[in-house]
Amino acid sequence: MVPLTRTAVVDRLRASGCVFAEDEADLLVEAAADPEELAAMVARRVSGLPLEHVVGWAEFAGLRVAVDPRVFVPRRRTEALVREAAALAAPGAVVVDLCCGTGALGAALAASLGRAELHAADIDPAAVACARRNVRAAEGRVYEGDLYEALPDALRGRVDVLLANVPYVPSDEVALLPTEAREHEARLALDGGADGLDVLRRVTARAPEWLAPGGRLLFETSERQVPSAVEAVTGAGLVPRVVTDEELYATVVVATWVGAR
């Protein structure tokens, strides 16, 4: 086998439709242990496998986050959610990352705070296994189960920051997603039901049970879903604030629990 040169890698990636072929080529060349592995990785990428699944990691909020096959790849726009949470939380905060996927959000927030009591949960066993690797540095714990049902009762009323990167793509729009997401990420991490907000409504409805007084729920949504998302927040007795990041094209809702225990 003739080893692939960087130029050859770029050419193959570009021919397959990769927009950032040169950047991806650099990552693949760096990640491959030998020419045979490089050729295999290029072939997987050209076949449509997400780059993060090929190399096994994603860059997120300054961290290198492990990404296993079929697990949702953390999006750069979601860094806006983590930045907002970091601005609101104090070191030592009790943090829960629901629908955690790789655990990137909780790991990044814990790293930003320097110290946190981190808990994460996901219904997907593959995501749970991946997240456990990513929260290890923060000494976080990851649970498998459906939203709050996965969490220990001891967390009720104690959570300072509740991160919930819930699926919010309407069911009939999942087919319109890029092939990388549609074919290589678990559908349950993408499909948010008829209007995209089914899981969010379940999260907001029970958030007051778990948040500490003054605690905050933060989630990402689309701009057009904001009115319905805010309605779900206020209906649960939380006070909403909408934050937009034009650079990352992100919309984050911060919902505060102002009740008392």
Rank of each mutant, 00 (worst) to 15 (best):
V2K: 05
V2L: 07
P3Y: 06
L4T: 03
T5H: 08
R6I: 09
A8M: 13
V9W: 11
V10H: 10
R12D: 07
R14Y: 07
R14Q: 15
R14D: 14
S16L: 13
V19Y: 09
L27W: 15
E30T: 13
A32D: 14
A33M: 06
E36W: 07
E36P: 00
A39V: 11
V42Q: 03
V46C: 03
L51R: 00
L51Q: 02
H53I: 14
V55H: 08
G56M: 02
G56I: 05
G56D: 03
V67G: 02
V67M: 04
R70P: 00
R70K: 09
R70W: 14
V73I: 13
R77K: 14
L81P: 06
V82S: 06
R83V: 00
A86I: 08
A87K: 11
A87Y: 00
V94D: 00
D97N: 04
D97P: 08
G101N: 02
G101F: 02
T102I: 01
G103S: 02
L105Q: 08
L109P: 09
A110C: 05
A111V: 05
S112T: 10
R115Q: 14
H119P: 10
A120R: 14
A120P: 02
D122G: 01
D124V: 14
A126E: 15
A127V: 06
A129D: 12
A129C: 08
A129I: 07
C130I: 05
A131L: 03
R132Y: 08
N134W: 12
R136V: 11
R141N: 08
V142R: 00
V142C: 00
P152T: 10
D153G: 14
G157L: 11
V159R: 01
D160L: 10
V161D: 01
L162E: 11
L163Q: 12
N165K: 08
P167L: 01
V169R: 06
S171V: 12
A175W: 08
A175L: 14
L176Q: 14
L176C: 12
L177C: 08
A186Q: 07
R187S: 06
L190D: 03
L197F: 05
D198F: 06
R201C: 07
T204H: 04
A205M: 07
A205L: 15
P208N: 03
L218F: 05
T221I: 14
S222H: 03
S222R: 04
E223T: 13
Q225T: 04
S228L: 13
S228G: 08
A229W: 10
V230L: 05
E231N: 03
V239R: 15
R241S: 09
R241C: 04
E247D: 14
A250F: 12
V254M: 02
G259H: 02
A260I: 08
R261C: 06
R261H: 13
